[in-house]
Amino acid sequence: MKFKGKVWKFKDDVNTDEIIPARYLNTIDPKELGAHCMEDIDSEFSKKISRGDIIVAGRNFGCGSSREHAQISIKGAGISCVIAESFARIFLRNSINMGLAILEIKDINGIKEGDYLEVDLASGSVVNLTEHKEYKAKSLPKFIQEIIKSGGLLKWIGKGGINAKRAKP
C-alpha cells in the first residue's frame, strides 16, 4: 500500500478526546465523526484537509480512551495514514485491527506542515518529497503484518485465523 499526501502536524500526546470529542460518541457514522475530527485542536481541520492527506505527530499519539471512533473519525475525514514518533497502545492495536495505516519513525522534526510525503507501508519507507529526504519506519512483527494483510482482525479470523490460532479453552 502506498500513499501520497500533504502533511498536517500535531504535537506530543494528542489524545482521543482531541481526535474525536466524547460529545460526538453517540454515533458511529464515519461522515459525521470525520466532520468533527481534531475539532478541539483546530475547529476547521476537517474542512481544510484533502483526501489522502497525512497526519504527522510526536510521541504517544492517540492516548486516552479505547474508542475506535478515533480511527473511524480519522479515516472518515479522509486521512490516509498517521505517522508518529510513538503511538499509545490501544490506539496502535485499534489501528491495526481496523486497517488504519500507521507508521512509527524515530524523529519527525525534519517534516514540516505542508510538506508532501510518499509512504510505502510494506517497506516502511517515508519519503519527504518537499525536502527530498527518506525516513525508515519500524517494521511490524510478522504476526501483525498477517492481520493487516488480511484487511483487519475480523477478516483474518474469517479467513481461518480463528482455527489455526485458537487457544485451547
Binding site: 479505547s66 475506535e68 492495536r93 485499534n94 485491527n97 482482525l153 475480523l154 479470523i157
Partner: peptide, 8 residues
C-alpha cells in the same frame, strides 16, 4: 482493547 478486538 478496541471494539474490533471485542468483536473478535
Amino acid at each position: 482493547i478496541g471494539s474490533t478486538d471485542l468483536a473478535a
